[in-house]
């Protein structure tokens, strides 16, 4: 690979870029269905800007990251290691997992937390071809009445919500935009 791209593509001003990125990620997680711009990183292909920025904002040597399918390339591994120092791991140990929905599945591989510590669960960063406020009807904490979000697989995500307060949490990324789906959200079919 080109040596320069391994070192390039990080935050230009780490504290400020990370603060902006985290605000976007936090707002998305607090308001399921909201789609927010998130930029700062320029990760190697096939990672989106949003997914790369999330990794730089949240991952470091204390978090284990699982790269699924097409995302598990030498360029991505080296870029992630250089910029975050995060150790790579299998799906069953991951704090964060990144890939397309098809590559990330099955969901049962990921940690869902324990009854005493439901926070010890994986956060999945799902790369999407499209991200829009259409499709599944969301309700619950963070949503005034209802919200809509294009979700990849209603059945699997509804099953995850049934585990509440256990379960995985999701970021959906597309280009430089991010949306989130915490386990607390009730998911209804398109109506």
């Amino acid at each position: 690979m080109d040596g320069s791209s391994l070192y390039a593509g990080g935050f230009r001003n780490a504290p400020v870029d990370a603060a902006h990125a985290f605000r976007a990620a936090m707002t998305a997680m607090a308001r399921p269905g909201d789609i927010r711009p998130i930029t700062g990183a320029e990760p190697p292909a096939p990672l989106s800007v949003a997914a790369g920025t999330l990794l730089l904002t949240l991952c470091d040597p204390e978090t284990r990251v699982h790269l699924a399918g097409a995302a598990d390339r030498p360029e991505v591994r080296q870029w992630l290691s250089f910029h975050t120092g995060a150790p790579l791991c299998g799906a069953d140990e991951a704090d964060f997992a990144l890939g397309t929905w098809a590559d990330l599945m099955p969901l049962s591989r990921y940690r869902i937390g324990t009854p005493e510590y439901p926070d010890r669960s994986a956060t999945l960063i799902v790369e999407c071809d499209a991200l829009a406020n259409t499709g599944a009807v969301l309700s619950g904490p963070g949503i005034r009445d209802t919200a809509r979000l294009s979700l990849p697989d209603l059945g699997v995500l509804q099953g995850n919500a049934m585990l509440y307060p256990l379960g995985c949490d999701f970021f959906f990324t597309c280009g430089d935009r991010v949306a989130a789906l915490p386990r607390s959200t009730t998911i209804g079919a398109e109506g």
Binding site: P15, F22, E62, P118, P182
Partner: peptide, 29 residues
Amino acid sequence: NFAYLDEQTKRMIRRAILKALAVPGYQVP
């Protein structure tokens, strides 16, 4: 550093905040 804390500490706190928002009312260590 910006806002006093170092970046690794902020990332640790930020991860806790995200889990806290995902499970409302649950106390994240």
